[in-house]
Design a protein around this nucleic acid. Structure first.
Length: 574
RNA sequence: GGGCGUGUGGCCUAGCCUGGAUAAGGCACCGGCCUUCUAAGUCGGUAAUCGCGGGUUCGAAUCCCGCCACGUCCGCCA
């Protein structure tokens, strides 16, 4: 158990003893008060009626009923709150011990012995990832890291559309369009080279019904299992998918498993889904096509029909998605999907179908709002996009300029290039993850390349400062005397470091990756205050000096671990 | 028309789930701090009817209802 949990538990036990006489069944919830009012607080407002006292008097009563011990040094009643002060020496001692012992695993929670599948990205392999879609892998990958730290066995999955209309359009374009008609991309990666075929094929489809038919024919053959068509489609999208993987890899994202939609056609599980859905009382037929009526499930609007089988007998994306989710439910205890907000209805339809089919595990969905451009929503089809590769390059370029401006005389070219890479990638991931998913983002280059204030260089710089101090000491083993770390900046820093495990728990429970970003920023900020107030290397008291070194090392560990949760590197110098 | 989400100083964001003690940061702007561990830092200042209107409550940015604005969806697309 981590120090903060221990304190909280201890206080709750003490409170339980004192509160027993009021016979209320109110849950004892201890909260963290605003600055300088203690470390934990118990609000007396909801208990006051049971005690037949004013909250202010009740707080005084409770405060006088609890005795101090080695952990609680002061109990204060103030305005209806009982405020608890934790012994700083004790907290410092146990916190530093915990961090220095656990190192890379500090913050990680107890193993849960539960498997979670996190599905994210799942982009159609018809072109490069763009910045709108980039929110998906970044949120997804950060959740993967958070859930791992929270003690889950995690597998990340990319649901690969190798059956639908989108890949069929791409394949048709590649086989029927003259390469000379395709606008050239400067980027040599296959995804950038092929996307033009997709775009032009889309235009042709809109103006020419024969093209629409040809593409429909491809989709139908795919579903019938025609080997030539399957091979042709695979050959068309495989290089594009490869390009997508390369882009992901540049921003430290690796996806464990790619699950093709076709798998659920081939193993007939989609057929089973169709048969079972047909048996439900909500199923209706219309011109040989089948749908579920969604009206009874609270879905209203212009159409409440959820079609799962076309009149030509082929399935739809959502139908295959149901089969996929049933399969996932068999392989995990917890399912999480990261989806764009445009998938809300489809996701609800799938959810209803899964319930009708008595699926054991239903997915928990993290929806994110779109990243749009000042001129409107990003669209691959219309070519109105900022590609992820483009943004990665710009971020690194910008970071390089900044390093050069500051360190050109001290560092070699390759050192500067290396730092620019770490800062640039971090900048990209941080600027996206620091905003809660449901908030929409208007993409501007100025914001995306933000290096000031609440941005990654601030945090990485704090880490580099810590490393710089440590590199100038010859300490092998970190010894400390926690009674000497009494400066307010030292105490605030220790408390901040002690909070880290709670942050992981919160971020995991709420699927809220942005709170890790907030925590990192605060931690870097508190460390900078310590850096200002408490000189380390020039401290003459040898024991205080080594205690501060231990604190710096602990901070370095926490910053590193928290950055790692966001998939961002912690440079040792910058 | 209906569903879902968002609305917090000039701009961007946290807090909302689980109501509580002076609404917290960043950018921009103004004024300080480098003979001391990298100033990508730090200290101070100006700046908010928490979209609008009701309600619940001792107490509402937070919960409930209505309205407005923006986003998104309501395809035998994915």
């Amino acid at each position: 158990m981590y120090p903060f949990d221990q304190c909280k538990k201890e206080i709750t036990i003490e409170l339980q003893k004192v509160l027993a006489k009021y016979h209320s069944n109110i849950e004892i919830r201890v909260e963290i008060p605003p600055n300088n009012m203690g470390d934990f607080a118990f609000p007396c407002f909801s208990l006051a009626p049971y005690a037949k006292k004013s909250p202010i008097d009740l707080a005084k009563d409770i405060a006088s009923g609890i005795s101090k011990n080695k952990l609680i040094t002061k109990i204060d009643a103030k305005g209806g709150y009982v405020n608890f002060f934790i012994d700083n020496t004790y907290l410092t001692s146990v916190t530093l011990k915990s961090i220095l012992e656990k190192k890379d695993t500090y913050g990680c929670l107890q193993k849960k012995k539960k498997k979670v599948i996190i599905e994210h990205t799942s982009a159609n392999p018809n072109g490069p990832l763009h910045v709108g879609r980039a929110r998906n892998p970044i949120i997804g990958d950060t959740l993967v890291r958070i859930f791992k730290a929270a003690g889950y066995d995690v597998e990340s999955q990319f649901y690969l559309d190798d059956m639908g209309k989108q890949v069929a359009i791409l394949a048709w374009g590649i086989h029927n369009l003259d390469g000379k008609q395709i606008p050239l991309s400067e980027n040599k990666k296959a995804d950038h080279q092929k996307v033009g075929f997709y775009q032009i094929a889309n235009e042709r489809m809109e103006s020419d019904e024969k093209v629409t038919e040809a593409i429909g024919e491809i989709v139908k053959k795919l579903e019938q299992g025609d080997h030539n068509t399957i091979d042709m489609i695979h050959a068309s999208y495989a290089p594009v998918l490869d390009g997508i993987k390369q882009s992901l890899s540049r921003i430290n994202i690796h996806i464990d498993t790619y699950i093709p939609e076709s798998a659920f056609i081939n193993d007939k599980s989609v057929d089973r889904v169709i048969n079972e859905l047909k048996q439900t009382t909500y199923c209706h037929e219309q011109d040989a096509a089948f749908y579920l009526d969604m009206e009874p499930f609270g879905i209203h609007g212009r159409s409440t029909k959820f079609f799962f089988l076309r009149s030509d007998g082929t399935t739809l994306y959502a139908t295959r998605d149901i089969a996929y989710h049933q399969w996932k439910a068999h392989h995990a205890d917890l399912l999480i999907n990261v989806l764009g907000e445009d998938h809300k209805l489809e996701s609800k339809q799938v959810q209803v179908a899964l319930e009708l089919l008595h699926t054991k595990v239903l997915p928990q969905i993290v929806f994110y709002a779109f990243v749009s451009l000042p001129e409107g929503k990003m669209s691959t089809r219309r070519g109105r996009v900022v590609y992820l590769d483009e943004l990665i390059d710009e971020c690194i370029e910008r970071a390089y300029e900044e390093v050069k401006k500051r360190r050109a005389s001290e560092l070699t070219e390759s050192q500067m290039k290396k730092i620019a890479e770490l800062v640039g990638i971090g900048c990209l991931r941080y600027n996206i993850i620091k905003i809660q998913p449901e908030k929409d983002i208007l993409f501007t280059w100025e914001e995306a390349l933000n290096f000031e204030g609440n941005a990654i260089p601030f945090i990485q710089y704090a880490h580099a400062r810590a490393c710089s101090i440590l590199s100038k000491t010859k300490v092998k083993k970190y010894t400390y005397d926690s009674t000497l770390l009494t400066h307010n900046s030292e105490i605030l820093l220790v408390k901040q470091l002690a909070r880290f495990p709670l942050v992981i728990d919160d971020a995991c429970i709420g699927c809220k990756p942005h709170i890790v970003a907030n925590y990192l920023y605060e931690t870097a900020s508190v460390f900078n205050q310590f850096y200002r107030d408490c000189p380390v290397l020039s401290e003459e008291n040898i024991i205080l000096r080594s205690s501060r070194i231990a604190l710096v090392n602990a901070t370095k560990i926490v910053l590193h671990n928290a950055l790692d949760l966001l998939g961002i590197s912690a440079p040792e110098e910058m």
